[in-house]
Design a protein around this nucleic acid. Structure first.
Lengths: 154, 154
DNA sequence: AAACCTTTTAGAATCATTCTAAAAGGTCCC
DNA sequence: GGGACCTTTTAGAATGATTCTAAAAGGTTT
């Protein structure tokens, strides 16, 4: 944990920014909730526990800054709230989302299924791929199981 | 054109809705701009030319309604505005986006590359796929050509 | 400690979208 | 033909996420 904070500190400093206490608190929240896709509001509420005097605007600015430095990834699942995810070396560019239309859960797939497609794009469409996103909407295994249980109970 | 309006009219009526003049004007705008990804605001301004008395809320409600009936597809490219696209039988479910980070253009690929992946998802992840989206961020062929030209001129 | 940075704060402002209450239009039935 | 009863529209207010602003606070450099 400390090592990763240190690394982010250096990324900030290399661009002339400082790791202020507010920024550090924000980064810690992100590290502690690495599996989740937190909204700015979520982050704000969690950071408030550590540093109650922090403002929402500061959290927004920090997330925006970290996003520019590619420390976090800003995402949009179409529900009107931006969500932020810490990038680490292993999941970088290789995760896709399963979005459940019933319960709203967002699961991840950590496999990279798109490399062959990207190669084809560059070849056939002359398009230089920098990033991608692949989301599936549907019904997650939990809701499917629940449906089955409900049906047998009825 | 008229045939397609007629078809949409029937889709509405089959669910108990009517094709009011405002809705028809909205649908016509969508048909006339089928290649574009219009925002609600864009649609509103274009509809105003045909029917100046229409309200923005009506456009929103109409687009929402058409979206529920799967006549249009509501999309989100992460720029804070929802965009709406007419669905027709040929592009239904089979288009992906090439979003240029340099000029902002959005091109479409009309091939379906994901069927094998969807089958795998249902099998391995027990996830019932209803819809998907696949977007690539990168540099489009136009900007690449432009770069090349600029470089040789310099 | 004065001058000069960057950063934070609180709250106002903005912008897309949704809600609300009232009005308008149709349709059915007598 | 006129109510009663629908759905739909309208204008404008309300909401909610995000951004801006002006003032204050902290650090650094001299």
């Amino acid at each position: 944990m400390e090592a990763r904070i240190e690394k982010i500190k250096q990324q900030l400093q290399s661009q002339g920014y400082k790791l202020t206490p507010q920024r550090e608190a924000t980064v810690r929240v992100l590290l502690e909730n690495e599996e989740d896709h937190l909204s700015a509001e979520d982050v704000f509420m969690l950071v408030k526990d550590k540093a109650p005097e922090i403002g929402l605007a500061t959290v927004y600015r920090t997330l925006e800054l970290l996003s520019e430095l590619h420390v976090v990834e800003k995402m949009n699942f179409g529900d009107g709230v931006a969500r932020y995810d810490l990038r680490n070396d292993s999941n970088h560019h290789h995760h896709h989302h399963l979005i459940c239309v019933q319960c709203g859960a967002v699961d991840e797939i950590m496999e990279d299924w798109l490399t062959p497609l990207e190669e084809r794009l560059e070849r056939e469409y002359n398009f230089k791929v920098l990033d991608h996103r692949l989301d599936f909407q549907g019904i997650c295994h939990r809701c499917k199981d629940k449906e089955k249980t409900d049906a047998s109970e009825a």
